[in-house]
Design a protein around this nucleic acid. Sequence first.
DNA 1: ACACCGTACTATACACTGTACGTTAAGAAC
DNA 2: GTTCTTAACGTACAGTGTATAGTACGGTGT
Lengths: 218, 218
Amino acid sequence: MARTPRNTLSADLIVRTALELMEAKGTDAFSLRGVAGELGVGPMALYTYFRNKDDLYDAVRDHLMGLLPAVPSDEAWPDQVRAVCRSLRLLMLQHPCLAQLLAGRPLSGHETARVAEGLLGVLRAAGFDAETAARTHTTLFTYVLGSTSWEIQMAAERRDPEAWRRLRTSMESLSARDFPSVVELAPELARTTGGDEQFDYGLDLLLAGLQLQVRTPS
Amino acid sequence: MARTPRNTLSADLIVRTALELMEAKGTDAFSLRGVAGELGVGPMALYTYFRNKDDLYDAVRDHLMGLLPAVPSDEAWPDQVRAVCRSLRLLMLQHPCLAQLLAGRPLSGHETARVAEGLLGVLRAAGFDAETAARTHTTLFTYVLGSTSWEIQMAAERRDPEAWRRLRTSMESLSARDFPSVVELAPELARTTGGDEQFDYGLDLLLAGLQLQVRTPS
DNA sequence: ACACCGTACTATACACTGTACGTTAAGAAC
DNA sequence: GTTCTTAACGTACAGTGTATAGTACGGTGT
């Protein structure tokens, strides 16, 4: 019986454990000590496989990006773009921690590059020049990131009854004289903080703009 | 000489000090102890004015939102929308901490409501119905939030030479066979992670989609 | 078989964090 | 002068990431 068994760890095992922990106890509850504890190991053991916490973050992000399906190849380019954006959003909803992992750090890793490659390939094949393809890629990515992060954030807030109550009362304290539109549209605003329809609404605006641009090149 | 002078603090003074600290030492360097130290006061003194750290965060965010200019009233609605989005982005660039303050917590506070009121008012005046106005508001807000947060994040990364070097090398390690588009467009992608042009590109796509929708109501 | 060495892991320690709790003293009201 | 409220203090706790140093296992060379 080895008192300190070796080679029981691996980068992949650590990543999967970290991911499980984030999904079970919430993104914020994640800590190196927590992951190490789950693995029955001291906190410093992780530093054999990752330079620091951010490095582990990046690895988890890339692992999640690997779960994205390939771009459908037998569709028109607007539908392909829609598919890529929708599947990224779905992945983020399925793994809420992904929102923070994507927002907080630059993109890196092979799986992440694969996803970018898919979208860029669609855009190039559709006839976009290099600069426009890059601009469009960034625009789409930041839209998906922003809107879905917001959606997740709001959903989390709604789950916390105390925070939700405070939000409602602070909403109701607004005078209808000073803020007529906000007060009038409060129910609509609450309804449009997320959901498939809201996401598709913005995405379709972007796609409409794109198609218009393709048809009338400057 | 009073050993513990009283009434030297105020919510507003604390907010301003917190803001100064965040801008001087970076958003992450902000801590209750740091703010209290700057004010020559114990950490717990702040709890007289704020329930907790998030509460202070919200106050700082609302304070910053108060700096946004009013919506120009003598322009066509697409230009008004553009002006609102641009000024929010500029404020975020000027106060990088605002990105995190907006992303991490739900919106609240009077100044924040004032800004929402401005944009919603423009949309209602332009003839959008309640639901479409709310959807558009959310779409525009999340686009500005996502794209500008990303821009700030990338700019910060570029300022850290170590992180920037690692990013470059990880980019260059991608094989041109597996990731042809990413490798080919690397320079364009690096160039389009921010800047006025990139922001306006996406914003104009959204506005083009919106105008199209107005002209051809379902 | 045995010494060796790189490496996987442990142990300890440091400088932080937010905040719960209990105490003290300043200023106002009577 | 007495009493009440409250602003600010001090202490303490349970965390955090990680630098540094030490230890014992596994595979390799002789």
